[in-house]
Design a protein around this nucleic acid. Structure first.
Lengths: 160, 160
DNA sequence: TGACTCATGTCAACATTCTGACACACACTC
DNA sequence: GAGTGTGTGTCAGAATGTTGACATGAGTCA
């Protein structure tokens, strides 16, 4: 029985530390977003929508790692508060393009400042180059897991 | 407008990529644990308990990033399946020490092998030294967030 | 001793998210 | 044109996790 198959101490397991970091980030974001009356999924929705206006609910859901059904509730809440608008009728297929309102953009701006502060706090112990490295490594890890389903051709690492 | 306060493209936001990696890992773990009739929280519970026998439900909850109440349900399910035992009476305070049974250890062994395979797949694109660096960087990020939160809310940080 | 604080286990109510299911709209093939 | 496949929006139910609350046991300090 080789040691490779045994999980070492938890602090040395990447999965555990990844979960720890994600949990801490989630809690911190939740704390700073609460005064703005925004949940993390709501903020994520606004952020994605600001960068990619016109996205449908289903596309938004994939971008924020939730189901279409959950995103639908999020959108409904944000729409009622006047932070975004959805087309009443579909131009193409059944997808209803969604866009931020001015109020939504203003709210997002405030939230974005708060969240950026959290990110800076999180990355404070790391040098700038280490921060970029972390970003690239995490992206590679995510791709290595999710990419397995569709393409196994990633035999070689793509460096940019 | 200063660029510092604006979240850049999502792919360059550490929080976003962190969430992406955590979600992918969670989904992959869920897939390999399902045949073993284990959920991710259940596996996490077994893993922690194996490394630190005798932990109470509350301690277990903190170690696996859930509430005491949730952990209680997890423990109840695992206990009914004979994978762990809880002391009927508390020796000290109200804490009920928990330990794995032989069946629990066997189940954990199988799960651990599967999860380790996932971790290796996730880390495959990274060189060994990059893997250790990622581990350390993530730990530093988590500490930078949770340490600050604790210090601000309770005024005194408990370091061990 | 008594009051206080802290941690634990547990109950109940609540919120959030997911799974399963259905109908609809478009693109493609035959 | 008819059939098929994919993507989308939506409803309902279930599972999951959380917050709030309470009683209990142990330690601390006046």
């Amino acid at each position: 029985m080789s040691q490779v198959e045994i999980v070492g101490p938890l602090d040395e397991a990447v999965g555990y530390v990844l979960k720890q970091a994600a949990t801490a980030l989630r809690a911190a974001m939740d704390a700073v977003l609460r005064p703005l009356k925004l949940t993390v999924p709501q903020y994520a929705c606004l952020e994605v929508l600001d960068q990619r206006p016109g996205l449908s609910s289903a596309e938004l859901a994939r971008a924020t790692f939730v189901t279409r059904q959950s995103m639908n509730l999020v959108l409904r809440g944000l729409q009622q508060r006047g932070l975004l608008t959805r087309a009443a009728v579909a131009e193409h297929g059944k997808a209803l393009p969604t866009e931020l309102t001015d109020a939504g953009r203003a709210q997002l701006r405030a939230a974005s400042v708060a969240v950026c502060a959290i990110e800076r706090q999180m990355l404070a112990p790391l040098a700038p180059n280490a921060q970029h490295r972390l970003l690239a490594d995490l992206a590679a890890c995510a791709a290595a897991l999710s990419g397995e389903c569709q393409a196994r051709s990633t035999e070689h690492a793509v460096m940019e």
